[in-house]
Design a protein around this nucleic acid. Structure first.
Length: 220
DNA sequence: ATCCCGAGGG
DNA sequence: CCCTCTGGAT
């Protein structure tokens, strides 16, 4: 399925970000779900600090369901969008208790129907908690996959399908992290560092961005 | 100043 | 499709 060039891109990514697959291990699906909801517009560091305080006090859906959203908001104040997330998490926990016996459903439709859970969060949970075939596509994954010629399409779903075709299944979880890391460190939305990018010679987009002056230059 | 390791709502 | 919610990184 994958071209020779695409396989080379993936090989290099694996070498560049060897520890990517060891990120974020949670002890159960509920913790993973909460941590993933918290992670939007926040750093892993902030999320880890907050969850380290949160989970000992509120270990499961029943505990979250009993919370006043305003009180939870105070406890997660260090992450972005904290009021919205607090509201979503309490309502989400109540739905888990009412409709799923307090556990996280291993089902896409059920997950996406929960407040605060969209396609991306559902995919993270499906892939990491339940070993289901899914690749979570956030803005970094979307942009970098397109630039590296691993997937094309207008929607995250299209890129998701493209990646699943090109990436060997055993690397799906890792590929998600490779693309995120590369997006954050090198392949920025605005001024990607193509001049010093280790993937430049196998990237279909980098040379064009350099020529157009869109990319940061070595001599800039 | 500007953009996000999103999702809901208008 | 565009806006908003948030703090943080750059």
């Amino acid at each position: 399925m994958a071209t020779r060039r695409q396989r080379e891109v993936l090989r290099r990514l694996a070498l560049l970000y060897p520890d990517a697959k060891t990120a974020l291990r949670w002890s159960n699906p509920f913790e993973l779900l909460v941590a993933t909801v918290l992670s939007a517009q926040s750093t892993d560091r902030r999320v880890n600090e907050v969850t380290a305080r949160l989970f000992p006090k509120y270990p499961d859906a029943a505990a979250f369901a009993a919370l006043d959203p305003a009180k939870l908001a105070e406890e997660i104040r260090d992450v972005g969008l904290f009021r919205t997330k607090a509201r979503h998490l309490v309502e989400l926990a109540r739905r888990l208790v009412d409709e799923h016996g307090g556990s996280v459903p291993a089902d896409r439709a059920a997950l996406e129907s929960l407040p605060g859970v969209g396609r991306k969060t559902a995919n993270v949970v499906l892939a990491n908690a339940f070993g289901e075939p899914a690749i979570a596509v956030d803005t970094h994954v979307f942009r970098v996959a397109q630039r590296l010629g691993l997937a094309r399409g207008r929607t995250p779903e299209a890129v998701e399908r493209g990646l699943m075709r090109v990436v060997p299944r055993r690397d799906w979880a890792a590929a998600h992290h490779w693309l995120i890391h590369h997006g954050r460190r090198v392949c920025h939305a605005r001024r990607p560092e193509c001049a010093t990018c280790p993937l430049l010679d196998c990237c279909p987009t980098g040379p064009r961005l350099l020529a157009a002056g869109t990319a940061a230059r070595r001599d800039a």
